[in-house]
Amino acid sequence: MSMLATEEKISVTGDLSTTGTRIEDGGRRLGLMLTLPAQLLVLFIAVFPLLMQLYISLTDWSPLDGIGWWQAYELWNNFANYTDLAVDSRFWDALGRTALVMLICVPAEFLLGLGLAILFMDNFAGKRVFYSIMLIPMMVVPAVAGYMFFMLFQSGGPVNDIISTLIGRPFALAWLSSPGTALIAVMIADIWQWTPLMFLILLAGLVGVPEDQMRAATLLGASWSQRFRTIVMPKMKTIIIIALSIRVIENFKIFDTLYIMTGGGPGVATETISVYIYKVTQQDLIWGYVAAIALVILIALSILVSLAISRMNAAKEA
């Protein structure tokens, strides 16, 4: 019945638009004129920092040089920032580390979030309470989460205490000051904090899977895993891509919790791109170089995201 109603509606609007072409032509021009200032403003806000960044990245400019950024062209350096970047092993290590963290954290958050969301599709005692508890990590201020995990992973901290109890002998690993484990601790903190977001988004997706289609599939003999693969996943494709995109972008910028836990150390053991940029900006003050790094990363991320979006559009059309 709803479908009939839509067909009717479409035909009605169709009629209106044929009689209204003349008005529409003028209307379009007027609309453009009315929104032009706003569009220019948005363009300016979005593009200006980028252009400025691009400009600075082509120079050796630093705020200590005593000249304004608009005069930075005097310090033009023939793309030296970019050629330096290509051979900056600390940058490439940080990038690799960031990618590693992302490749472990985001899938872990996705799988945990999905598993929890599936559990929450069923009814069980205390569901509401668990639901509220589930969301707490997401609401903790990252800096606070950082201090929390800093405490947890001390050599005499609760994590080691629990492990000691489990294995029955003293265990006193200095998680955050051993290069091998600091990154693990950092990733655990990230997974703890951001699994709830995945959970929340994926739960919304699961709830949106039409129940009657699931029933129809069951009645046709599909097992749970067949239903999951043939109905749930295709229906959730868009929302999964959105959830993953959000987390990939966010995780790539991982900084606050991590910085409080390890400061990027020991050494450079947990130095991700954000930490590296921060250090170069704050300590070395070579802003032209930072601008170049930031631009490269922005372009890389943009490519990643637009790939995801094109996948999403393809999914929608299919």
Binding site: Q213, R215, A216, L219, L220, G221, S223, T230
Partner: peptide, 28 residues
């Protein structure tokens, strides 16, 4: 319900909207 050997046509049809006609027919 999957083991009862029952075919069910729902009031609102419950067609798999993300599949084409062929895949809907082939599903079972």
């Amino acid at each position: 319900m999957g083991r009862r050997g029952v075919g069910f046509v729902f009031q609102n049809y419950a067609i798999f909207t993300h599949m084409n006609v062929y895949d809907n027919l082939a599903y079972g």
